[in-house]
Amino acid sequence: MADDGHPHVLHKPTLFKVFGALIVLTIITVAVAYLPLGPLAMPVAIAVASTKASLVVLFFMALKDDNPVNGLTFTIGTIMVSVFIAFTLFDTAFRGDLGNVSSQTIEEIEKEQEEAQEQQIDPENLRVAPADYPDQQGATSETGSEN
């Protein structure tokens, strides 16, 4: 073939080989989904998908023989994606880790508050300000200020 000379020319047999590999990997990813891998399911699926993506990038998109700056560009892009995901997960996966923030969602907190609202409370317990004690005006104002 006239492939030599121009570095970017795509080699037909290689394309078909890569395509075959992609099909096999697709079958693998479907197959492993039915295995009881538990917590490993996600990493395995992502690993297979990453392999497939790398094949597409390296051979179909010909990054393997391309100008290195294009490869660098793509690498930086993918690094940024992993940074975005990892750093956000540092937060969301560890919310409330040291006990100073609630791990409850706002919805749950609101629900709790609503339930508390619905409880009947003795009006005696709701008196906080001096004005709440009209019967003791003046004489015992310090009772109110304590609260």
Partner: peptide
């Protein structure tokens, strides 16, 4: 500059570990 965005969120309720990293 891409690794420090969480320093705007120290009091937002994000996890302590990510605050420390940021």
């Amino acid at each position: 500059g891409f690794l420090v965005w969480g320093h705007h969120m120290f009091v937002s309720g994000q996890s302590v570990i990510s605050s420390i990293i940021f």
